[in-house]
């Protein structure tokens, strides 16, 4: 899946560690999602969307 997580994170001036702490996951998880090497689980995708006040489709799109 493609995603715009890094852009959204940059808009908020968050580091990857900040986002990882907000999501309760490791920084490696955030890095892997941003590099599109790891598709998050549905609960984590919902949590990411809730963190950025948007829907899952706003962040993740099918390739």
């Amino acid at each position: 899946m493609k995603n715009n997580l890094s852009e959204r994170r940059a808009e908020r001036r968050w580091t990857q560690a900040d986002l990882a702490a907000a999501l309760g996951v490791s920084r490696q998880t955030v890095i892997s999602i941003e590099r599109e090497k790891f598709d998050p689980s549905l609960p984590l995708a919902f949590l990411i969307a809730r963190t950025f006040d948007c829907t899952i489709e706003d962040i993740f799109t099918a390739e």
């Binding site: 999501l23 309760g24 996951v25 490791s26 490696q28 998880t29 892997s32 999602i33 790891f38 998050p40 689980s41 609960p43 984590l44």
Partner: peptide, 12 residues
């Protein structure tokens, strides 16, 4: 138990 441990890439 880490409540979101199952969602981390390390588990994969």
């Amino acid at each position: 138990r880490d409540p979101r441990g199952e969602q981390s890439v390390e588990l994969q």
